[in-house]
Simulated scan of single mutants.
Amino acid sequence: MTNVAVIGAGEMGGWFARQYAQKGLELRIADADHQKAHALASELGAFSGPTEEIIPKSDEVLIATPLDTAEGIINAHQHLLKGKTVYDIASVKNGIPEALAQASGKSLSLHPMWGGATNGFENQNLIMIPLHPLEGAYQSHFDGLKQRFEGYGTRVTMLHHGEEHDRLMAWNTALYHFNNLAMGLALSRSGMPASRHQQVEGTTATLSRICAEAVAHSDPTLYFSIQTKNPYVREAHEVLWQCFSHLKDVVQEGNYGAFAKVMQQASAYFMEGKDPQNYLKKAMSQFAAAVGAAKGAEFRHVLAT
Rank of each mutant, 00 (worst) to 15 (best):
A293G: 09
A99K: 06
L145G: 05
I7H: 01
E43K: 07
N172K: 04
D219C: 10
A21K: 14
L240N: 07
T69I: 07
E235K: 15
H161F: 04
V215H: 05
Q252C: 04
Q199D: 12
M158S: 10
M169H: 12
L168R: 11
L62F: 04
A294Y: 01
I129E: 05
S188P: 04
A304K: 07
Q22C: 07
G153S: 11
P66R: 01
L126Q: 00
G153Y: 07
K274Y: 09
A101D: 02
S245H: 10
F16Q: 06
E213H: 11
A137L: 10
H111C: 11
A64F: 03
S285H: 11
Y138V: 10
Y138W: 06
G191D: 12
M12I: 09
S195E: 15
K282H: 08
C243Q: 12
P193F: 01
K106T: 02
V215F: 12
L134W: 03
T206S: 12
A101N: 09
E253Y: 03
Y269C: 09
V250M: 08
G144W: 05
V239G: 01
M158H: 04
I96G: 00
A41F: 06
G13I: 06
Q198M: 14
L25W: 07
E52W: 03
S208M: 11
L168M: 13
L145A: 05
E272P: 00
V6N: 01
D59N: 09
L134T: 03
K146V: 00
N179Q: 11
T228W: 03
M158W: 03
I129F: 02
L67N: 00
H237L: 15
E53H: 10
H237W: 12
E150F: 08
Q198N: 10
L108S: 06
A258W: 01
V92F: 05
L100G: 06
D88S: 15
A290N: 08
P56A: 00
A214C: 09
A30M: 08
L222D: 04
T154A: 15
I55E: 05
A137D: 14
L247S: 09
G72S: 12
A30N: 10
D275M: 07
E253Q: 15
G116K: 07
M284K: 04
E201N: 09
Y232P: 04
R148S: 02
F47N: 13
S245V: 06
V4N: 02
M169L: 15
S208Q: 13
T154V: 13
H132W: 03
H141Q: 09
G254M: 14
K281Q: 14
A212Q: 01
G191L: 11
V302Q: 13
F121S: 01
Q198K: 13
D275S: 11
F287V: 00
D31T: 09
Y176R: 02
A214G: 15
A288F: 06
S48F: 13
Q102A: 14
L168C: 08
V233I: 07
R28D: 00
A297P: 07
A5M: 05
D88F: 05
L67F: 07
A293Q: 14
G120D: 15
N75R: 13
K229N: 14
L25K: 00
I89R: 08
N278Q: 11
D68W: 03
N125G: 02
K229V: 02
T154L: 06
K261Q: 15
Y20R: 03
G151T: 08
